[in-house]
Amino acid sequence: MAESDVSKYRMVVIGGSAGSLDVILRIVSEARQLTHVAFVIIVHRSKSADSILADLLSTQTPLLVKEVEDKESIMPGIVYIAPPDYHLLLENERTFSLDASEKINYSRPSIDVTFESAADIFGPALVGIVLSGANADGALGLSAIAAAGGYTIVQEPVTAEVDFMPRQAINMTRVDAILEGEEIGGFLEVLLKKA
């Protein structure tokens, strides 16, 4: 892909909780061409689930899927997953960091924490997506992304397995696009390729 065919967006952060797994798998499988952005996935899960999610996502995409380690480099074309029991932060455009501090919204990793940190670093070059979930996590973070000039997407609550989280996000933020779960992947492809 030529440089001019590429949009201004350089990172996509996706937050989901209960009922979001199928949508995440679908987005990742449809993102195979999007090698010029870094994907970051924050999903609430139990500590013991550990590497299962990375393994599962790997089966869906040719992109490299990595559970983030301490001070991991941020590279385009890689799908990063927040590790269980840590908050995932960005030090700068090139480096992640991890944080084992208090849970936020009863969650660690917390979607708000990563969204706010990514908004701080990437500003208008960031796309944030909130999916199905039973928790208010992600709503504040999405508004931070909007405030920093980033693009915000929320799964259409009616199509979400659990609609609480997308509803909270819509109530709290100016949302750029409200999409059915199965539309998100195709929409991203257009958004991220636009010159």
Partner: peptide, 9 residues
């Protein structure tokens, strides 16, 4: 110290 975490604190 890593700054992202410090800022949050």
């Amino acid at each position: 110290y890593a700054r992202a975490s410090l800022k949050r604190r």
